[in-house]
Simulated scan of single mutants.
Amino acid sequence: MAAAGTIRYWAAAKSAAGTAEEPYEAATLAEALEAARQRHSTRPEFARVLLSCSFLVDGNPVGLRGHDTVTLTTGGTVEVLPPFAGG
């Protein structure tokens, strides 16, 4: 069952998406990211940036878990975090 929430983009991901945030309607992180890739298909840098990002779902790091195993919640938040330079 799909959940509805918000994806927030930071730094290079925000620039590549052309927006700071947008809604998701998906059951898993994999589904939400695939829908975002499709929405931004005219921005090829977006898909490239996503490959290097880490993700927080409702404040919890996804780490090495498969994105298809990360369940999303209604009212939840996905943070898309590209690598940051510096300390």
Rank of each mutant, 00 (worst) to 15 (best):
G5M: 08
S54C: 02
T69V: 03
E45V: 04
V70T: 08
L56M: 10
A35G: 09
V49E: 05
L33I: 12
E34R: 09
W10G: 03
A36H: 05
R8E: 06
L50R: 02
G5K: 08
M1N: 08
V57L: 02
G87C: 00
L33W: 06
S15M: 00
V49G: 02
P83R: 01
T28K: 05
F84D: 00
P23N: 11
P61A: 14
E34A: 15
T77M: 04
R37H: 14
Q38T: 15
R39S: 12
L81E: 02
A2Q: 11
A26V: 12
V80T: 02
F46P: 06
A20S: 13
W10F: 15
L51Y: 03
V62D: 06
G59N: 04
A32F: 08
D68Q: 11
C53N: 07
H40V: 06
T73N: 12
E21Q: 12
R37C: 15
L72D: 04
V80H: 00
D58T: 05
L29T: 09
G87F: 04
G59Q: 05
E25V: 13
P83C: 01
A32N: 11
R43H: 15
G63Y: 03
T73K: 15
R65F: 12
S54Q: 13
T77V: 14
A47E: 14
S15Q: 04
A32T: 09
H67L: 11
V49N: 02
T71H: 13
A3T: 06
A47M: 03
C53E: 10
F46V: 08
R43N: 13
L29K: 05
A36N: 05
A16E: 02
V78K: 00
R8C: 10
E79R: 01
E25Q: 12
T6R: 11
E21Y: 01
L81F: 03
A26R: 09
L64I: 00
A12K: 03
I7L: 14
F55D: 02
A4W: 12
P82L: 01
S41H: 13
